[in-house]
Design a protein around this nucleic acid. Sequence first.
DNA 1: CGCCTTTGACCGGCGC
DNA 2: GCGCCGGTCAAAGGCG
Length: 172
Amino acid sequence: MDFSRESSNPNLNITFYTDNLDPVTEFELSDYLMLDGGVFEEDSSSQSIASSEKGLGGANEISGATSKTPIMQTEAREKKLEQRHRVAFITKSEIEVMDDGYKWRKYGKKPVKNSPNPRNYYKCSSGGCNVKKRIERDRDDHSFVITTYEGSHNHYSPFTVYYNQMPPNAWT
DNA sequence: CGCCTTTGACCGGCGC
DNA sequence: GCGCCGGTCAAAGGCG
């Protein structure tokens, strides 16, 4: 299984869920880039973790370290997020493993009942960080990928650090 | 040489 | 109590 990075979907929409699986919003890929998985416990300062690195391979122009999306301005989203530490995305993409700036180590794979597609389990490999991530494809329309994050990162994403080191609107 | 993927086994929870 | 199911572990191998 290797997904060539070719899905050039001009309009990738991403449905965003909280742990209640309430559809919160539909985003475009560019929105996803600003999403943060860093939902922190309670309200201890919702750290914004800008995500995305190479993400959807050729699908977008953010390949490499080119993300330039302002992360502030997701407050509404963060509000939703700070409720729990579980976040699910449904993305329409050929690539399932989107690099959000963290290092993920795969620790399991399971066939999904009622679906020909397996489900993959990832863990953040950064020290002491026990964030988990689960990726599977939609059973019906396997052009959709369901990504579920669980937990809060112990540390900032390398990218977030990068962001924080930059002037607030360096990329606008 | 270190880190990562792979893969089957194992485990706990839940429903019947 | 048993079997299924989803989730995790851990050994082995591969790759950079």
